[in-house]
Write a protein that binds this DNA or RNA. Structure first.
Lengths: 241, 241
DNA sequence: ACCTGAACACCGTTCAAGT
DNA sequence: ACCTGAACACCGTTCAAGT
Protein backbone atom coordinates (compact mmCIF):
# COMPACT_ATOMS: atom_id res chain seq x y z
CA UNK A 1 0.00 0.00 0.00
CA UNK A 2 2.20 2.85 1.18
CA UNK A 3 5.63 1.39 1.63
CA UNK A 4 8.55 3.52 2.79
CA UNK A 5 9.24 5.42 -0.37
CA UNK A 6 12.76 6.32 0.66
CA UNK A 7 15.45 7.17 -1.79
CA UNK A 8 18.53 5.75 -0.15
CA UNK A 9 21.71 4.35 -1.63
CA UNK A 10 23.53 7.33 -2.96
CA UNK A 11 26.76 5.27 -2.95
CA UNK A 12 28.66 5.55 -6.16
CA UNK A 13 29.66 1.94 -6.39
CA UNK A 14 27.54 1.65 -9.51
CA UNK A 15 29.53 2.99 -12.45
CA UNK A 16 26.08 3.43 -13.94
CA UNK A 17 25.74 7.17 -14.49
CA UNK A 18 22.07 6.67 -15.03
CA UNK A 19 19.59 9.43 -14.73
CA UNK A 20 19.74 11.85 -11.84
CA UNK A 21 17.30 14.42 -10.60
CA UNK A 22 19.91 17.08 -11.22
CA UNK A 23 20.56 16.06 -14.80
CA UNK A 24 16.85 16.01 -15.51
CA UNK A 25 16.31 19.46 -14.09
CA UNK A 26 19.32 20.88 -15.91
CA UNK A 27 18.03 19.48 -19.19
CA UNK A 28 14.58 20.83 -18.46
CA UNK A 29 15.92 24.31 -17.80
CA UNK A 30 17.87 24.16 -21.04
CA UNK A 31 14.76 23.24 -22.98
CA UNK A 32 12.79 26.05 -21.39
CA UNK A 33 15.53 28.62 -21.98
CA UNK A 34 16.06 27.64 -25.58
CA UNK A 35 12.68 26.49 -26.81
CA UNK A 36 10.25 28.06 -24.40
CA UNK A 37 8.11 26.73 -21.62
CA UNK A 38 5.50 25.18 -23.87
CA UNK A 39 8.21 22.99 -25.39
CA UNK A 40 8.80 21.32 -22.05
CA UNK A 41 6.95 18.03 -22.18
CA UNK A 42 7.94 14.79 -20.56
CA UNK A 43 8.23 13.19 -23.96
CA UNK A 44 10.48 15.89 -25.34
CA UNK A 45 12.54 15.94 -22.17
CA UNK A 46 12.99 12.19 -22.46
CA UNK A 47 14.17 12.47 -26.04
CA UNK A 48 16.72 15.14 -25.10
CA UNK A 49 17.99 12.91 -22.30
CA UNK A 50 18.03 9.99 -24.75
CA UNK A 51 15.88 8.00 -22.43
CA UNK A 52 12.39 6.65 -22.41
CA UNK A 53 10.18 9.56 -21.31
CA UNK A 54 8.70 7.44 -18.57
CA UNK A 55 12.09 6.87 -16.97
CA UNK A 56 11.86 10.41 -15.63
CA UNK A 57 9.03 9.37 -13.36
CA UNK A 58 11.40 7.17 -11.46
CA UNK A 59 13.32 10.25 -10.30
CA UNK A 60 10.64 12.90 -10.23
CA UNK A 61 7.07 12.25 -9.16
CA UNK A 62 5.32 14.47 -11.68
CA UNK A 63 5.61 17.51 -13.88
CA UNK A 64 4.76 19.93 -11.14
CA UNK A 65 7.74 18.66 -9.13
CA UNK A 66 9.85 19.18 -12.22
CA UNK A 67 8.78 22.82 -12.34
CA UNK A 68 9.61 23.16 -8.65
CA UNK A 69 13.05 21.93 -9.56
CA UNK A 70 13.38 24.69 -12.14
CA UNK A 71 12.50 27.30 -9.53
CA UNK A 72 15.02 25.84 -7.13
CA UNK A 73 17.73 25.88 -9.79
CA UNK A 74 17.20 29.50 -10.73
CA UNK A 75 16.81 30.69 -7.16
CA UNK A 76 20.11 28.97 -6.47
CA UNK A 77 21.76 31.38 -8.87
CA UNK A 78 21.08 34.27 -6.54
CA UNK A 79 24.43 35.41 -5.19
CA UNK A 80 23.97 36.93 -1.77
CA UNK A 81 27.63 37.92 -1.61
CA UNK A 82 26.82 40.74 -4.02
CA UNK A 83 25.26 42.54 -1.08
CA UNK A 84 27.23 45.32 0.57
CA UNK A 85 26.35 45.49 4.28
CA UNK A 86 28.03 48.88 4.61
CA UNK A 87 25.27 50.48 2.56
CA UNK A 88 22.18 51.91 4.23
CA UNK A 89 19.41 49.35 4.63
CA UNK A 90 17.14 50.89 2.03
CA UNK A 91 19.90 50.79 -0.56
CA UNK A 92 20.65 47.17 0.23
CA UNK A 93 17.04 46.31 -0.40
CA UNK A 94 17.01 48.11 -3.72
CA UNK A 95 20.18 46.25 -4.62
CA UNK A 96 18.63 42.96 -3.59
CA UNK A 97 15.69 43.68 -5.85
CA UNK A 98 18.00 44.19 -8.80
CA UNK A 99 19.90 41.00 -8.04
CA UNK A 100 16.64 39.08 -7.85
CA UNK A 101 15.42 40.63 -11.06
CA UNK A 102 18.68 39.89 -12.84
CA UNK A 103 18.63 36.16 -12.22
CA UNK A 104 15.03 35.99 -13.38
CA UNK A 105 15.73 38.05 -16.48
CA UNK A 106 18.52 35.61 -17.29
CA UNK A 107 15.81 33.01 -17.84
CA UNK A 108 12.97 34.95 -19.40
CA UNK A 109 11.19 31.84 -20.61
CA UNK A 110 11.22 30.39 -17.12
CA UNK A 111 9.94 33.52 -15.43
CA UNK A 112 6.31 32.55 -15.67
CA UNK A 113 7.15 29.49 -13.62
CA UNK A 114 9.55 31.14 -11.21
CA UNK A 115 7.45 34.20 -10.61
CA UNK A 116 4.09 32.49 -10.26
CA UNK A 117 4.74 29.59 -7.98
CA UNK A 118 5.37 30.00 -4.31
CA UNK A 119 8.74 29.12 -2.91
CA UNK A 120 8.77 25.76 -1.23
CA UNK A 121 12.32 24.57 -0.83
CA UNK A 122 14.83 25.39 1.85
CA UNK A 123 17.28 26.72 -0.70
CA UNK A 124 14.72 29.18 -2.07
CA UNK A 125 14.12 30.60 1.38
CA UNK A 126 17.73 31.58 1.99
CA UNK A 127 17.35 34.93 0.21
CA UNK A 128 14.12 35.52 2.12
CA UNK A 129 15.89 34.97 5.41
CA UNK A 130 18.62 37.33 4.30
CA UNK A 131 16.15 40.04 3.43
CA UNK A 132 14.21 39.56 6.63
CA UNK A 133 17.43 40.17 8.53
CA UNK A 134 17.91 43.50 6.77
CA UNK A 135 14.38 44.66 7.54
CA UNK A 136 14.54 43.60 11.18
CA UNK A 137 17.98 45.17 11.46
CA UNK A 138 16.49 48.40 10.17
CA UNK A 139 14.11 48.41 13.11
CA UNK A 140 10.96 47.05 11.51
CA UNK A 141 8.66 45.21 13.89
CA UNK A 142 8.33 41.48 13.15
CA UNK A 143 4.85 42.11 11.83
CA UNK A 144 5.94 44.86 9.49
CA UNK A 145 9.09 43.04 8.46
CA UNK A 146 7.02 40.07 7.36
CA UNK A 147 4.67 42.33 5.46
CA UNK A 148 7.67 44.06 3.92
CA UNK A 149 9.28 40.90 2.57
CA UNK A 150 5.95 39.72 1.22
CA UNK A 151 5.33 43.01 -0.49
CA UNK A 152 8.90 43.14 -1.76
CA UNK A 153 8.72 39.65 -3.20
CA UNK A 154 5.37 40.23 -4.84
CA UNK A 155 6.51 43.51 -6.30
CA UNK A 156 9.69 42.12 -7.82
CA UNK A 157 8.19 38.89 -9.12
CA UNK A 158 5.11 40.64 -10.41
CA UNK A 159 7.11 43.34 -12.09
CA UNK A 160 9.47 40.94 -13.82
CA UNK A 161 6.63 38.67 -14.86
CA UNK A 162 4.85 41.45 -16.68
CA UNK A 163 8.08 42.88 -17.96
CA UNK A 164 8.96 39.71 -19.87
CA UNK A 165 5.35 39.27 -20.88
CA UNK A 166 5.47 42.69 -22.47
CA UNK A 167 8.78 41.96 -24.16
CA UNK A 168 7.39 38.80 -25.69
CA UNK A 169 4.25 40.60 -26.80
CA UNK A 170 6.30 43.30 -28.45
CA UNK A 171 8.44 40.76 -30.23
CA UNK A 172 5.37 39.00 -31.49
CA UNK A 173 3.90 42.28 -32.67
CA UNK A 174 7.18 43.21 -34.35
CA UNK A 175 7.06 39.94 -36.27
CA UNK A 176 3.72 41.02 -37.63
CA UNK A 177 5.32 44.22 -38.82
CA UNK A 178 3.57 46.64 -36.56
CA UNK A 179 5.29 48.73 -33.89
CA UNK A 180 3.74 48.22 -30.45
CA UNK A 181 2.87 51.87 -30.02
CA UNK A 182 1.18 51.88 -33.41
CA UNK A 183 -1.10 49.02 -32.58
CA UNK A 184 -1.97 50.63 -29.27
CA UNK A 185 -2.77 53.89 -30.97
CA UNK A 186 -5.13 52.29 -33.41
CA UNK A 187 -6.82 50.47 -30.55
CA UNK A 188 -7.29 53.63 -28.52
CA UNK A 189 -9.02 56.47 -30.38
CA UNK A 190 -8.04 59.95 -29.26
CA UNK A 191 -11.56 61.04 -28.38
CA UNK A 192 -12.10 58.28 -25.89
CA UNK A 193 -8.51 58.00 -24.64
CA UNK A 194 -7.07 61.52 -24.70
CA UNK A 195 -4.66 60.97 -21.86
CA UNK A 196 -3.21 57.75 -23.23
CA UNK A 197 -2.62 59.39 -26.59
CA UNK A 198 -1.11 62.45 -24.98
CA UNK A 199 1.38 60.31 -23.10
CA UNK A 200 2.16 57.96 -25.97
CA UNK A 201 2.88 60.91 -28.22
CA UNK A 202 5.38 62.52 -25.89
CA UNK A 203 7.10 59.53 -24.37
CA UNK A 204 7.85 56.76 -26.82
CA UNK A 205 9.40 53.55 -25.59
CA UNK A 206 10.52 53.16 -22.01
CA UNK A 207 13.56 51.62 -20.51
CA UNK A 208 12.21 48.87 -18.35
CA UNK A 209 15.23 48.73 -16.06
CA UNK A 210 14.76 52.39 -15.25
CA UNK A 211 11.09 51.80 -14.63
CA UNK A 212 11.90 48.94 -12.30
CA UNK A 213 14.41 51.05 -10.43
CA UNK A 214 11.95 53.90 -10.16
CA UNK A 215 9.29 51.56 -8.86
CA UNK A 216 11.33 49.68 -6.32
CA UNK A 217 12.81 52.92 -4.97
CA UNK A 218 9.37 54.42 -4.60
CA UNK A 219 8.18 51.31 -2.80
CA UNK A 220 11.19 51.12 -0.49
CA UNK A 221 11.09 54.83 0.25
CA UNK A 222 7.43 54.50 1.05
CA UNK A 223 7.91 51.51 3.30
CA UNK A 224 10.68 53.19 5.23
CA UNK A 225 8.55 56.31 5.54
CA UNK A 226 5.37 54.62 6.74
CA UNK A 227 6.19 51.26 8.33
CA UNK A 228 7.38 52.65 11.63
CA UNK A 229 3.95 53.99 12.45
CA UNK A 230 1.71 52.61 15.15
CA UNK A 231 0.25 49.29 14.06
CA UNK A 232 -2.47 48.78 16.67
CA UNK A 233 -5.32 49.02 14.23
CA UNK A 234 -3.90 46.12 12.28
CA UNK A 235 -3.80 43.56 15.03
CA UNK A 236 -7.59 43.52 14.97
CA UNK A 237 -7.81 41.74 11.65
CA UNK A 238 -4.66 39.81 12.28
CA UNK A 239 -6.32 36.51 12.99
CA UNK A 240 -8.12 35.78 9.80
CA UNK A 241 -7.58 32.52 7.97
CA UNK B 1 -27.28 45.86 -48.19
CA UNK B 2 -24.14 46.27 -46.24
CA UNK B 3 -22.46 43.06 -45.22
CA UNK B 4 -21.43 43.95 -41.70
CA UNK B 5 -19.93 40.95 -39.95
CA UNK B 6 -22.20 41.78 -37.03
CA UNK B 7 -25.13 39.37 -37.39
CA UNK B 8 -27.68 41.19 -35.31
CA UNK B 9 -30.66 39.04 -36.16
CA UNK B 10 -31.40 38.08 -32.62
CA UNK B 11 -35.13 38.31 -33.11
CA UNK B 12 -37.71 35.93 -34.51
CA UNK B 13 -37.49 34.01 -37.70
CA UNK B 14 -34.88 31.67 -36.46
CA UNK B 15 -36.25 30.67 -33.11
CA UNK B 16 -32.76 29.22 -32.88
CA UNK B 17 -31.08 31.15 -30.11
CA UNK B 18 -27.79 29.98 -31.47
CA UNK B 19 -24.45 30.48 -29.96
CA UNK B 20 -23.06 33.92 -29.26
CA UNK B 21 -19.62 35.08 -28.27
CA UNK B 22 -21.10 36.53 -25.11
CA UNK B 23 -22.85 33.34 -24.08
CA UNK B 24 -19.67 31.38 -24.67
CA UNK B 25 -17.57 33.71 -22.57
CA UNK B 26 -20.15 33.81 -19.80
CA UNK B 27 -20.24 30.03 -19.69
CA UNK B 28 -16.45 29.90 -19.71
CA UNK B 29 -16.23 32.29 -16.79
CA UNK B 30 -18.75 30.20 -14.90
CA UNK B 31 -16.72 27.06 -15.46
CA UNK B 32 -13.55 28.78 -14.31
CA UNK B 33 -15.19 30.26 -11.23
CA UNK B 34 -16.82 27.03 -10.19
CA UNK B 35 -14.49 24.30 -11.35
CA UNK B 36 -11.18 26.06 -11.74
CA UNK B 37 -9.15 27.13 -14.70
CA UNK B 38 -7.86 23.67 -15.53
CA UNK B 39 -11.46 22.50 -16.03
CA UNK B 40 -11.87 24.92 -18.91
CA UNK B 41 -11.46 22.89 -22.06
CA UNK B 42 -13.20 23.39 -25.35
CA UNK B 43 -14.80 19.99 -25.00
CA UNK B 44 -16.14 20.68 -21.53
CA UNK B 45 -17.29 24.12 -22.55
CA UNK B 46 -19.13 22.60 -25.46
CA UNK B 47 -20.89 20.11 -23.22
CA UNK B 48 -21.99 22.85 -20.84
CA UNK B 49 -23.34 24.84 -23.76
CA UNK B 50 -25.01 21.64 -25.05
CA UNK B 51 -23.31 22.06 -28.35
CA UNK B 52 -20.65 20.30 -30.31
CA UNK B 53 -17.36 21.55 -28.90
CA UNK B 54 -16.19 22.53 -32.35
CA UNK B 55 -19.11 24.89 -32.81
CA UNK B 56 -17.29 27.29 -30.53
CA UNK B 57 -14.63 27.80 -33.15
CA UNK B 58 -17.18 29.43 -35.37
CA UNK B 59 -17.50 32.29 -32.87
CA UNK B 60 -14.06 32.39 -31.30
CA UNK B 61 -10.86 31.75 -33.20
CA UNK B 62 -9.00 29.82 -30.51
CA UNK B 63 -8.62 29.22 -26.83
CA UNK B 64 -6.33 32.16 -26.29
CA UNK B 65 -9.03 34.45 -27.63
CA UNK B 66 -11.44 32.81 -25.23
CA UNK B 67 -9.14 33.71 -22.35
CA UNK B 68 -8.93 37.28 -23.65
CA UNK B 69 -12.70 37.29 -23.46
CA UNK B 70 -12.53 36.29 -19.80
CA UNK B 71 -10.18 39.17 -19.07
CA UNK B 72 -12.46 41.57 -20.88
CA UNK B 73 -15.48 40.33 -18.94
CA UNK B 74 -13.85 40.74 -15.55
CA UNK B 75 -12.25 44.08 -16.37
CA UNK B 76 -15.71 45.21 -17.39
CA UNK B 77 -16.83 44.72 -13.82
CA UNK B 78 -14.62 47.56 -12.67
CA UNK B 79 -16.90 50.38 -11.63
CA UNK B 80 -15.16 53.70 -12.12
CA UNK B 81 -18.05 55.55 -10.53
CA UNK B 82 -16.81 54.31 -7.17
CA UNK B 83 -14.09 56.91 -7.43
CA UNK B 84 -14.46 60.11 -5.45
CA UNK B 85 -12.78 62.98 -7.31
CA UNK B 86 -12.95 65.18 -4.23
CA UNK B 87 -10.32 63.06 -2.51
CA UNK B 88 -6.64 63.89 -2.82
CA UNK B 89 -5.01 62.21 -5.82
CA UNK B 90 -2.97 59.77 -3.76
CA UNK B 91 -6.08 58.56 -1.95
CA UNK B 92 -7.91 58.12 -5.22
CA UNK B 93 -5.12 55.91 -6.46
CA UNK B 94 -5.17 53.80 -3.32
CA UNK B 95 -8.92 53.50 -3.73
CA UNK B 96 -8.52 52.51 -7.37
CA UNK B 97 -6.11 49.80 -6.32
CA UNK B 98 -8.66 48.36 -3.92
CA UNK B 99 -11.38 48.47 -6.56
CA UNK B 100 -9.13 46.69 -9.02
CA UNK B 101 -8.18 44.11 -6.43
CA UNK B 102 -11.78 43.53 -5.43
CA UNK B 103 -12.98 42.58 -8.91
CA UNK B 104 -10.07 40.20 -9.30
CA UNK B 105 -10.62 38.65 -5.89
CA UNK B 106 -14.24 38.04 -6.92
CA UNK B 107 -12.87 35.57 -9.48
CA UNK B 108 -9.93 33.96 -7.73
CA UNK B 109 -9.77 31.08 -10.17
CA UNK B 110 -9.55 33.47 -13.08
CA UNK B 111 -6.86 35.63 -11.56
CA UNK B 112 -4.00 33.74 -13.10
CA UNK B 113 -5.44 34.58 -16.48
CA UNK B 114 -6.45 38.15 -15.70
CA UNK B 115 -3.28 39.07 -13.90
CA UNK B 116 -0.80 37.44 -16.26
CA UNK B 117 -1.95 38.50 -19.67
CA UNK B 118 -1.55 41.99 -20.96
CA UNK B 119 -4.60 44.05 -21.61
CA UNK B 120 -5.50 44.20 -25.25
CA UNK B 121 -9.05 45.38 -25.64
CA UNK B 122 -10.43 48.87 -25.66
CA UNK B 123 -12.70 48.11 -22.75
CA UNK B 124 -9.78 46.98 -20.61
CA UNK B 125 -7.96 50.23 -21.22
CA UNK B 126 -10.69 52.46 -19.86
CA UNK B 127 -9.50 52.12 -16.25
CA UNK B 128 -5.95 52.77 -17.43
CA UNK B 129 -7.02 55.99 -19.10
CA UNK B 130 -8.83 56.98 -15.95
CA UNK B 131 -5.80 56.37 -13.79
CA UNK B 132 -3.52 58.18 -16.20
CA UNK B 133 -5.76 61.20 -15.88
CA UNK B 134 -5.35 61.19 -12.12
CA UNK B 135 -1.56 60.97 -12.30
CA UNK B 136 -1.29 63.69 -14.94
CA UNK B 137 -3.73 65.81 -12.97
CA UNK B 138 -1.47 65.43 -9.95
CA UNK B 139 1.32 67.04 -11.91
CA UNK B 140 3.31 63.98 -13.00
CA UNK B 141 5.23 64.45 -16.24
CA UNK B 142 3.98 62.25 -19.10
CA UNK B 143 7.04 60.09 -18.71
CA UNK B 144 6.56 59.60 -15.00
CA UNK B 145 2.81 59.18 -15.33
CA UNK B 146 3.32 56.33 -17.77
CA UNK B 147 5.86 54.74 -15.46
CA UNK B 148 3.46 55.21 -12.57
CA UNK B 149 0.53 53.44 -14.22
CA UNK B 150 2.79 50.60 -15.32
CA UNK B 151 4.20 50.22 -11.83
CA UNK B 152 0.74 50.53 -10.31
CA UNK B 153 -0.70 47.88 -12.60
CA UNK B 154 2.15 45.48 -12.05
CA UNK B 155 1.99 45.95 -8.32
CA UNK B 156 -1.72 45.31 -8.05
CA UNK B 157 -1.87 42.41 -10.48
CA UNK B 158 1.28 40.85 -9.08
CA UNK B 159 0.09 41.22 -5.53
CA UNK B 160 -3.30 39.69 -6.18
CA UNK B 161 -1.82 36.90 -8.24
CA UNK B 162 0.42 35.78 -5.39
CA UNK B 163 -2.27 36.44 -2.83
CA UNK B 164 -4.65 33.94 -4.39
CA UNK B 165 -1.81 31.57 -5.09
CA UNK B 166 -1.00 31.60 -1.41
CA UNK B 167 -4.63 31.13 -0.45
CA UNK B 168 -4.90 28.07 -2.68
CA UNK B 169 -1.65 26.69 -1.34
CA UNK B 170 -2.87 27.10 2.22
CA UNK B 171 -6.16 25.41 1.40
CA UNK B 172 -4.32 22.52 -0.17
CA UNK B 173 -2.07 22.25 2.86
CA UNK B 174 -5.05 22.39 5.19
CA UNK B 175 -6.59 19.48 3.34
CA UNK B 176 -3.49 17.50 4.18
CA UNK B 177 -4.03 18.34 7.79
CA UNK B 178 -1.05 20.54 8.36
CA UNK B 179 -1.21 24.22 9.22
CA UNK B 180 0.76 26.37 6.80
CA UNK B 181 2.99 27.83 9.47
CA UNK B 182 3.74 24.37 10.76
CA UNK B 183 4.93 23.10 7.43
CA UNK B 184 7.06 26.19 6.99
CA UNK B 185 8.57 25.73 10.38
CA UNK B 186 9.59 22.19 9.71
CA UNK B 187 11.07 23.24 6.39
CA UNK B 188 13.13 26.00 7.96
CA UNK B 189 15.32 24.90 10.87
CA UNK B 190 15.98 27.56 13.49
CA UNK B 191 19.75 27.42 13.19
CA UNK B 192 19.77 28.23 9.51
CA UNK B 193 16.75 30.53 9.49
CA UNK B 194 16.73 32.37 12.81
CA UNK B 195 15.00 35.46 11.49
CA UNK B 196 12.19 33.58 9.78
CA UNK B 197 11.51 31.61 12.93
CA UNK B 198 11.64 34.73 15.06
CA UNK B 199 9.03 36.39 12.90
CA UNK B 200 6.80 33.36 12.50
CA UNK B 201 6.75 32.88 16.25
CA UNK B 202 5.61 36.40 17.04
CA UNK B 203 3.30 37.14 14.15
CA UNK B 204 1.07 34.27 13.18
CA UNK B 205 -1.18 34.61 10.17
CA UNK B 206 -1.55 37.89 8.35
CA UNK B 207 -4.54 39.70 7.02
CA UNK B 208 -3.88 39.95 3.34
CA UNK B 209 -6.11 42.95 2.79
CA UNK B 210 -4.16 44.87 5.37
CA UNK B 211 -0.94 43.82 3.76
CA UNK B 212 -2.20 44.98 0.39
CA UNK B 213 -3.25 48.30 1.83
CA UNK B 214 0.07 48.72 3.56
CA UNK B 215 1.91 47.94 0.34
CA UNK B 216 -0.06 50.11 -2.02
CA UNK B 217 0.10 53.03 0.39
CA UNK B 218 3.85 52.67 0.69
CA UNK B 219 4.17 52.55 -3.08
CA UNK B 220 1.92 55.53 -3.68
CA UNK B 221 3.54 57.55 -0.93
CA UNK B 222 6.91 56.75 -2.42
CA UNK B 223 5.85 57.66 -5.94
CA UNK B 224 4.42 60.97 -4.83
CA UNK B 225 7.57 61.66 -2.84
CA UNK B 226 10.08 60.84 -5.56
CA UNK B 227 8.47 61.18 -8.97
CA UNK B 228 8.62 64.93 -9.15
CA UNK B 229 12.41 64.89 -9.18
CA UNK B 230 14.52 65.79 -12.13
CA UNK B 231 14.38 63.06 -14.73
CA UNK B 232 17.26 64.05 -16.98
CA UNK B 233 19.34 61.03 -16.18
CA UNK B 234 16.57 58.80 -17.40
CA UNK B 235 16.21 60.17 -20.89
CA UNK B 236 19.63 58.73 -21.67
CA UNK B 237 18.45 55.15 -21.57
CA UNK B 238 15.06 56.02 -22.86
CA UNK B 239 15.59 54.70 -26.36
CA UNK B 240 16.25 51.05 -25.77
CA UNK B 241 14.46 48.35 -27.67
C1' DA C 1 17.27 -0.50 -8.68
C1' DC C 2 16.43 1.37 -12.75
C1' DC C 3 14.40 1.66 -17.27
C1' DT C 4 10.89 0.34 -21.13
C1' DG C 5 6.58 0.36 -23.94
C1' DA C 6 1.98 -0.13 -24.42
C1' DA C 7 -2.16 1.86 -22.97
C1' DC C 8 -5.57 5.29 -20.91
C1' DA C 9 -7.89 9.38 -20.78
C1' DC C 10 -7.45 13.42 -22.02
C1' DC C 11 -6.03 18.03 -24.90
C1' DG C 12 -6.48 22.09 -29.03
C1' DT C 13 -7.31 22.47 -33.70
C1' DT C 14 -8.41 21.36 -38.81
C1' DC C 15 -11.53 20.25 -42.22
C1' DA C 16 -14.88 18.20 -45.12
C1' DA C 17 -19.51 17.57 -44.65
C1' DG C 18 -24.17 18.37 -43.18
C1' DT C 19 -28.50 21.73 -42.46
C1' DA D 1 -24.77 31.08 -41.74
C1' DC D 2 -24.19 27.97 -38.44
C1' DC D 3 -23.21 23.52 -36.56
C1' DT D 4 -21.38 18.46 -36.66
C1' DG D 5 -18.09 14.54 -36.30
C1' DA D 6 -14.21 12.27 -37.56
C1' DA D 7 -9.39 12.74 -37.53
C1' DC D 8 -4.59 14.54 -36.36
C1' DA D 9 -0.97 15.34 -33.47
C1' DC D 10 -0.17 15.99 -29.34
C1' DC D 11 -0.40 15.83 -23.73
C1' DG D 12 0.55 13.70 -18.41
C1' DT D 13 0.36 9.60 -16.05
C1' DT D 14 -0.24 4.44 -14.81
C1' DC D 15 1.35 -0.03 -14.81
C1' DA D 16 2.95 -4.53 -15.93
C1' DA D 17 7.01 -6.06 -17.68
C1' DG D 18 11.85 -6.26 -18.72
C1' DT D 19 17.14 -5.99 -17.14
Amino acid sequence: MTPPRKMVSEERGKSRPGLTREAIIAAALEIVDEEGLEALSMRHLGSVLKVDPMAIYYHIPNKSALLDGLIEAVMGEIDLSLDDPSLPASERIVLAAHIYRDVMMAHPQAVQVIAINNLNTRESFRPVEYLMDIFLGAGFSPHRALAAVNIFGRFVRGFVLFEVHQIFAEEAAACHGCAPTESLQQLLPVEEFPRMNEVMASVGALGTVDEFDLGIRALVDGMFATFYEDEDQMSVNEDQT
